[in-house]
Structures are given as structure tokens and as C-alpha cells.
Amino acid sequence: MNRSGLSLVFAVLGGLVLLFIIAPLAGIFLKTTPVQFFETVRDKDVTASILLTLSISLFTTLFFAIGAIPLAYLLARKNFRGKNLVQSLIDLPIVIPHSAAGIAILGLVSRDSFLGKAASTVGIDFVGHPLGIGLAMAFVSVPFLIQSARTGFEQVPVRLEKAALTLGASTWGSFKSISMPLAKRSIISGMIMMFSRGLSEFGAVVIIAYYPMVTPVLIWDRFNSFGLKYARPVAAVFLLVCLLFFIVLRILANKTSHDQDRKHI
């Protein structure tokens, strides 16, 4: 088979996979009438749920970044005993069933657990609480941030950090002024991935909190209680919001990177 023939075969096979991804998503929008769509947008339960989902995922991403970025840096720069084990543990939440992840988190934060008891002394019950939902979202989404940030730090030449030290910077100064800005693109990309993954989490969240209802749970609830006809418009609105957020964040991230690249020319 010549090269153009092979390219054609690959294009057809790849096109089928692409169609498989696009068709169901397009179907949601095509089968939702404008009236249904706008009624759903005006539905206070839906808007409250979407706002809750967005805010928990955003807060969770920002909060966990405080620990995830330093961990990513350590994994990129240091060799230590058990490093491979740590890396495998970080990837674990991605590969286990998310319902199992929810059960694991529930074990950690339930009322009879150590953390649950400690939180209850200050009046917080993680189960059925946005904090619990945030923990469930973080459990399954933080690996995306860690891995992306780690790749970013690995791409920063160690030599630049050494140079910073010889030029009078402290190790924190070198991290803040050299490593972080140069790994910024990967870190932001990882944060977008974590945020997006948190938004879409259902399996782990539903075990921690049915109420307050994050949108994936609301879609499931509408489907279970009223059927596909009532679940689909919520899914369409949520998909559109997620898509918009994703696009806006990507544009902002690319703009930051582009500005940085342009400065280099």
C-alpha cells in the first residue's frame, strides 16, 4: 500500500472514532429544543447546581494546587527511595472505579473516622457538605495537575536553577522566579484539566453527597426520576457551560504562553 492509500485508511479509521465522540454530544444538543433549553436555564435548581459545581471545582483546584505543585516539583527534581511507589499512588485514583474512590473518601471523612470526628468538633460534617464534595472531586482529579506540573518542571533545565543560586537567589527565590514561571504553561494546563475533571465527577461525589446536588448528580437524579427527556436539557446546558469554561480557560492559558513566546522573539 502506498503512502497516500495508508493515509486514507488512517483518516477513515480516525474519522470513525472522532464521529463516535462527536455524535452523542451533538445528539444531546440536537434533541434539545430551544424552548427546553431556555426553560432549563431559568430553572433555579439547575443554575444553583451548576454554580455550586463550578465553585467547588474551582476552589478545590486552587486549594489543592498549593500542595500539588510542590509535590510535582519534588517528583521532577528529587530522587528518593519509594519514588516509583509514590508515582504509582498518584496515578491510582485515575485507574480505580470512581465509586470505589468515593467509598475510600467516605472511609476517610465519615462521621466515625478520625478526620470526620475532628471536623465535627468545629461543626463540619463532610458527608453531604461542599467540602466533602470537594475532597471527592480532588481525589480523582488532582493526579492530572500533579502529572502535568511535573512534566513542566522536568522541562525546566536544572542548569537555570543552579545559575539562579549562584546569582544570589535562595532556593525559594529560584523556585519562585525561575522554575514556576518556566513551568507555568504546564501548571495552568494541569489546573484546567483538574478543574474540568472535577466538574464532571459523578461516581465519587454521589457517594459522599447526594445533596447539595452537583450537576452530574442532578442529571442522574432527573434521569432516574423523570427520564431522558428531562435529564437531557440539563446535560445540554451543563455541557455548554463546561465547554465555554474550557474554551475560555484554554484561550487565557494560550494567551499567557503566547505572550511569553512573543517576548522571546
Partner: peptide, 12 residues
């Protein structure tokens, strides 16, 4: 003060 072989200038 050291000047490295690859210069290690900060590209950003």
C-alpha cells in the same frame, strides 16, 4: 561568579 557552558540565561 560562574558563567556556564550553556550560559543558562533566563529565557522568560
Amino acid at each position: 561568579g560562574i558563567v556556564f557552558q550553556d550560559l543558562a540565561l533566563f529565557p522568560h
